[in-house]
């Protein structure tokens, strides 16, 4: 570890519990780089996570952290932000945590446009519990609960967030580390609900079932399948079929929930 980022970690908790080559460590690295660039005060920054491998992230970070219950990170984060809007609140959640059990919290946090920066570690699987398919597991992929291939269609989480009302939506991968760091910075700066979907790799529970090779091979797969919007535009429909866009996907303006609430309070206090 580089000395300049040591201050953001609970060093005594390292090495982390993630498997060899797991992408979660790279996501966390990009998060602390973004926080360092933003010069955020560690004592005024809160990390809220749910349950799962990804959600263990909060335990390694030296901020005020809240490791909550499965699917409820956004609910707890909403409470923190509502009570203390001056705090910077980040939500660290897995694809299962966020889109299965926590799916309802997700759409309503987006709909309210509450100022939270939500980072979804999308490894397309329930990693922690041994590899059951999640609502983000691609169709036909193998999981312990879909040994013959997943029958279901996955969510397009970015589109779901946009439809629900999120005001900043971006996607990166654990290969696209600079883009990921920049997206976290942009997401933080957005005064409203920001979703950053990170396509990350779970060599143990997803890669192994789907013959994706070593952790390095999974990173190379991300490099070859995550493309910029400009490149995507120029691809044929066949070429597009296995590609996804990385970068900023959506940005718009809408009233922010806690600011609206403050206005309401001031209106009645002023009487």
């Amino acid at each position: 570890m580089l000395p300049e980022i040591e201050q953001y970690f609970r060093l005594e908790k390292l090495p982390h519990m993630w498997c060899p080559g797991c992408g979660n460590g790279i996501v966390l690295h990009c998060l602390v780089k973004a926080i360092d660039k933003l010069c955020l005060d560690q004592d005024r920054t809160v990390m809220v996570s749910g349950i799962g491998c990804a959600a263990r992230a909060s335990g390694y970070l030296d901020f005020d952290t809240l490791h909550t219950t499965h699917g409820r990170a956004l609910a707890f984060a909403t409470g923190v932000k509502f009570a203390k809007p001056e705090l910077n609140v980040f939500v660290l959640t897995g694809d299962g945590d966020c889109t299965a059990i926590g799916g309802n919290h997700f759409i309503h946090a987006a709909r309210r446009n509450i100022n939270l920066t939500t980072i979804v570690f999308n490894n397309n699987i329930y990693g922690m519990t041994g590899g059951q398919y999640s609502p983000m597991t691609p169709n036909a992929c193998r999981a312990t609960t879909s040994p013959y291939g997943n029958l279901e269609r996955p969510f397009n989480l970015a589109e779901l967030a946009i439809a629900a009302g999120a005001t900043f939506v971006g996607r990166a991968t654990t290969y696209h580390t600079k883009q990921l760091t920049d997206l976290i910075i942009e997401g933080y700066k957005n005064n409203g609900f920001s979703l950053i979907e990170v396509v990350t790799h779970c060599p143990t529970s997803f890669g192994r079932h789907n013959k994706m090779g070593s952790p390095a091979d999974m990173l190379k797969w991300q490099r070859d399948h995550g493309v910029t919007a400009m490149r995507y535009e120029n691809l044929s429909p066949e070429e597009r079929s296995d590609k996804f866009i990385v970068g900023v996907l959506h940005r718009c303006e809408a009233p922010e929930y806690t600011a609206e609430y403050q206005k309401l309070q001031e209106k009645f206090r002023g009487r």
């Binding site: 570890m1 498997c19 060899p20 080559g21 070593s214 952790p215 390095a216 990173l219």
Partner: peptide
Amino acid sequence: INQAWCKKCGICIAF
């Protein structure tokens, strides 16, 4: 290399 933290995943060697 901090051998105490390295999990021998091979990513650094591949990249």
